[in-house]
Computed example of a mutant assay.
Amino acid sequence: MTGWHTPDDLIARYTDGSLPETDSWSLEKHLESCTACAVRASHAARAGAAGAVLSEVRDAVLHAVRAPAAVPSQAHASAPTPAPAPAGRRARAVGGRLGRIVWAAGPALRGAWLGAVVLVALGALALAYAGGFAGARPLLLAVAPVVPVAGVALSYGRHADPLYEIVATSPTGGLRLVLMRTAAVLTVSVPLLTAAGLLLPSAGPRLPQAPATAAWLLPGLALTLAALALSGYLGCRTASLVVGGGWVLALAAPVLTATGPGLTARLTEQLSRYLTGAPPQGAWAAAAALCALLLAARRTAYDRLETM
């Protein structure tokens, strides 16, 4: 329940179909949480031109529901007991349920992004063990924080989801769906990349010590929340490009312009400045908290299709 209630003229325009589409979305969101306005909108719809049609639909539904009740109970008593579903059918039902869960988790888990995450993890291991590349660990730590950001870019929006308009206008759309799909992205990427980091060998004696395997987790969370917060202004894809590009630029520019040891050693030193120690990790934690607050303050922006 809110302190503001919809004016009568707005409800009348909504029920007769003359209210613009964007205003209708906003009004429907209000009706979900305001019982008084929902009741008034229902009464207005019944009193309008659609009332007769709604009444006919209601009568037809009630007739279809009540029709089986007219069958004598003896017929039900003589009916054979249905056999239990075969094991194969139950397995298919479980598989179908799992498929619906994967579908709801977002396009990122159904597209090329999932394969790219596996390729990054396996590629780092192949570089380290098959290729003898000593810089596989810092390279993985440099890429890992932006992998969830890329998943966010592919999880929500017209460019990613063929059912976007239907999903976004449903009661579970908006920020709730964005967070659910982001959680699915993190659930997949965090274990895979962390496991790959644990399996990588330590840096050679000629290279500086790389940050710990889990040092990228807090920066990855902060960058993901930053992409979500900016999505309320720029859209998922543009916001993810800005955040991911900012991380790459902040990491690559000092590495490419500095002089001294090799490229891998400079990358390791730069990663240590960003990821190792209490001050950098504290700064990432503060950034994550700030982005979460901004995301909560801008939560209504995710209900409008134009912004995503």
Rank of each mutant, 00 (worst) to 15 (best):
Leu263Lys: 00
Ser33Tyr: 03
Pro254Cys: 10
Thr268Cys: 10
Asp23Ile: 00
Thr172Tyr: 02
Ala292Tyr: 05
Leu199Gln: 07
Glu21Cys: 00
Ala136Trp: 01
Leu256Arg: 07
Arg299Thr: 12
Gly174Ile: 00
Ala289Leu: 15
Gly232Asn: 03
Leu141Ser: 08
Ala283Thr: 12
Ala38Thr: 09
Ala226Gln: 13
Arg298Gln: 15
Ala288Ile: 12
Ile101Tyr: 04
Pro148Tyr: 06
Ser231Glu: 05
Trp25Asn: 09
Ala258Lys: 10
Ala183His: 03
Thr307Cys: 12
Trp4Cys: 00
Pro279Met: 02
Pro261Ser: 05
Ala79Ser: 14
Leu19Pro: 02
Gly174Met: 01
Leu177Tyr: 00
Asp23Val: 03
Leu221Asn: 00
Leu217Tyr: 01
Leu199Lys: 09
Ala52Cys: 04
Leu200Thr: 11
Val152Tyr: 09
Ala116Tyr: 06
Gly174Arg: 02
Pro219Thr: 09
Ala278Arg: 05
Ala252Gln: 07
Leu140Ser: 08
Ala160Ile: 00
Leu62Val: 13
Arg206Gln: 15
Cys291Lys: 01
Gly115Thr: 05
His159Met: 09
Ala38Ser: 15
Ala278Tyr: 00
Arg176His: 13
Leu256Ile: 12
Leu62Lys: 11
Gly132Ala: 08
Ser78Lys: 07
Thr15Ser: 07
Val65Arg: 11
Ala253Trp: 10
Met1Gly: 08
Val94Lys: 02
Thr300Lys: 14
Glu21Tyr: 12
Ala250Ile: 12
Thr187Tyr: 02
Tyr274Gly: 00
Leu234Asn: 11
Leu218Asn: 07
